[in-house]
Amino acid sequence: MEKILFGDNQFFAINHISDEKSRAQSIKFKDDKSIIKTLDYAMEANINTFMCTTHDRISKICDSIRENPIKYQNFKIYPCLPYAHKYANAVTELGLTNSLKQFVPGNFMGSMFKGGLAFLGKDYIAIMELLIDAELKIFEKIDTPVIFLQNVVTDLLLGLGMDEILLAFHNYIATKYGVEAGFITMNMPKLLDTLERVGIKNPIICSSINKLGFRMAGGRACYEDVLNEKQFRAIAMQVLAAGAIPPQEAIEYVCSLPNIQSILFGASSKANIIQTTTLIHQFHETNEVFQNVNKKNTESSKVVLTS
């Protein structure tokens, strides 16, 4: 995994501390060209991984990537699925069964053999696999070395104790797509315990990690202990706590922690992209612990990939 990953929240009006900023972003990124232009700024700053949801508009971005193979030859996408609001709104409007029918392509109950059988037999893992396939269709022929389960679903399964489904997601991504599964969560320490228990070694976990302890269930100290003591590949997101921490202070804190393999951030302007990447490089290079742990993690991730 690269040291810096570029996120997509800003493109879809997701701002965790200001509804007003959300609206401004929604206006700014009204057309796909403005998204592509911002991705260009990220690439100019040497960020070549885009971590994004399966929002409808991402399929247009994927088309553009496929149409320009030379420009995007080193470009990778880390898809995060499912795009939860799409399902939540559908369940509210249509009910559970009708929503499933809507999202699985083909005739869910009948002609699609696997789907029909899965539904009748209540084979949930097979239903999940169908939904994964449906969501990943838009990324065809694009390099997607890590595929993430979104936090709402990860955390829901975690709370319900449905560990088996978390493992099934991990295994399906590895066997069907030949890439690694990752998990996004707001409950990193609890999730890591669960993933270790079901036998997932050195998992990729993306979670909020910031100086304010914002969206870090269990508190900052608990996260720091886990980062110090356990073996996993951590991706830090919401490092700026949605803008509540000044960038320099925020990045300095995250770069001082051990075991952080990558930092995920999103930004709407060229200036903010440059500022954040410059800060990450600056604090990363001055922090020996960070570099050493990264080296260790890169080695162990190779083991996972070949095993």
């Binding site: 409950n187 914002f214 949605a242 509540a244």
Partner: peptide
């Protein structure tokens, strides 16, 4: 003032 100043600390977070 932002929510980050007022969020209650919870042991488990969903939505």
């Amino acid at each position: 003032k932002y929510i980050t100043d007022y969020s209650p600390v919870v042991n488990y977070h969903l939505r």
